[in-house]
């Protein structure tokens, strides 16, 4: 079951794209430009807010942000067994 945090991130992305009603976890967010370079900065802020993590912008691996599943693995799966 998805965490409340990743659902907050998914809702934020969907909120920017009213033409979409759902967002599968494997959709390539950056390649498809659902998140562009400007909104990427906001996405990082949303993830930090939802996860409590602090993200160093200069050491970011974009693969951690390419899909909802990747974001969940990188920022919302800590401590789970």
């Amino acid at each position: 079951m998805a965490s409340a945090g990743i659902e907050k991130v998914r809702d934020w992305i969907l909120g920017r794209h009213p033409e979409r009603t759902e967002l599968a976890e494997d959709v390539r967010l950056l390649d498809s430009r659902l998140v562009d370079s400007l909104s990427f900065v906001e996405l990082v802020y949303v993830i930090e807010d939802a996860s409590g993590a602090e993200i160093d912008f200069d050491s970011i691996d974009l693969e951690d942000f390419q899909t909802v599943a990747a974001i969940e693995r990188a920022f919302f799966a800590r401590g789970e067994s």
């Binding site: 370079s37 990427f40 900065v41 912008f57 200069d58 970011i60 691996d61 974009l62 693969e63």
Partner: peptide
Amino acid sequence: EAVFKLFHAAGQPVPWLA
């Protein structure tokens, strides 16, 4: 963003503040 495109740097975000 125009300056960032000069770098041809794949796989990393725009260094906005730098």
